[in-house]
Structures are given as structure tokens and as C-alpha cells.
């Protein structure tokens, strides 16, 4: 099997089984309870293979909420570094997208993208659980349409050729 075919399989598997981890970077809890609500029977994201994992090491997608506070910014960066490639960050809520209602608060930095690269933004205050599901679903659609012939898009899916790394970061 060629490298290309293998990548194709990996890509498909990733789309069918994104495990998410959740991080509150200083939000009001509104988005957090809606993220928890997507697991529950009414919305049940397990039918898409989405699982909420406690350990960022196991996760593929990091759901971040809230405008990043000055205390959480280094922790967010560190948790992002702990995750294994391929990894994606989704900003949930208006304050995670673009500062939102906290733009006057001195101890906040702004959207998640000021600290780590963001793959998908889900505006809403808070977004409905369906909107969160839709956001993750749209991220997967974006992955599915990646053209693996191109090097940079190939890199974003997998690091198959990469040797296992030793992280300087330890789990908090």
C-alpha cells in the first residue's frame, strides 16, 4: 500500500472518529454547559463517533471557550502543545471568536486565535448545541475535502513519516 492510500485511510478514519477535549479559557460557562449538552440524549454526538475525552493527549479536537484570560493563555498554549498531531482547535462562542462582550475587561487577551491557531469558529452566545455539532461537522467536511496531493494540506492531516516525539510538556 502506498503512502498516499494510507493517508487517505487515515483521513477517513479521522473524519469518522474525532475525539474532543474541552478547555474553558475564561468563559461564562454558557458555552461549557452547551458543550456538555451535546453529549446528552437529545443531541447525542456519539452517533458521529465524537467522544469527549478528559486527557488532551487522546484528543484530536480541542474545543475552547471564552476570551482568553491572562492567566489561562500560557495554559492554553501548553495544553495545545500536549496534543498529538493531527490536532485542531475549535473556538466555541462569540467571546472565543472575537472577544465579544468582554472587550472592556483588562484581564482578557481576546479570541482564541491570539494564542493558538484556530481551525473553526462557532459564533453564538452561546451557540445552540446543534450549532456546535454543525461546527465540528463542518470542520470534518473541510478535512474530507483536503487535497492530499498538496504538501501543506497533506501535513495538516498526518505526520506519518514523523518520528515519535518527546514532549517537554507534562500534563497539568
Amino acid at each position: 500500500m502506498s503512502d498516499q492510500q494510507l493517508l487517505e485511510i487515515v483521513k477517513n478514519a479521522l473524519i469518522k472518529s474525532p475525539w474532543v477535549s474541552h478547555l474553558n479559557c475564561g468563559s461564562c460557562n454558557g458555552c461549557d454547559i452547551e458543550i456538555l449538552a451535546v453529549l446528552t440524549p437529545r443531541y447525542d454526538v456519539e452517533r458521529f463517533g465524537i467522544k469527549l475525552k478528559g486527557s488532551p493527549r487522546h484528543a484530536d479536537v480541542l474545543l475552547c471557550t471564552g476570551s482568553v484570560t491572562r492567566s489561562m493563555a500560557p495554559r492554553l498554549k501548553r495544553i495545545y502543545n500536549q496534543m498529538a498531531d493531527p490536532k485542531f482547535v475549535v473556538a466555541v462562542g462569540s467571546c472565543a471568536t472575537n472577544w465579544g462582550v468582554f472587550h472592556n475587561c483588562y484581564n482578557t487577551l481576546g479570541g482564541i486565535d491570539k494564542v493558538v491557531p484556530v481551525a473553526m469558529y462557532i459564533p453564538g452566545c452561546p451557540p445552540r448545541p446543534e450549532a456546535i455539532v454543525f461546527g465540528v461537522y463542518k470542520l470534518l467536511l473541510k478535512l474530507a475535502s483536503l487535497d492530499l496531493e498538496k504538501q501543506e494540506e497533506k501535513d495538516s492531516v498526518s505526520n506519518l513519516t514523523q518520528e515519535p516525539i518527546r514532549s517537554e510538556e507534562v500534563t497539568t
Partner: peptide, 12 residues
Amino acid sequence: KWLTASDNKEDF
């Protein structure tokens, strides 16, 4: 209208 997720902030 509420399904507004996007990967580009300019879409908003």
C-alpha cells in the same frame, strides 16, 4: 439563522 460556523473570521 443560527448555523453560522466558519473557518474564516471574515465570513462573520
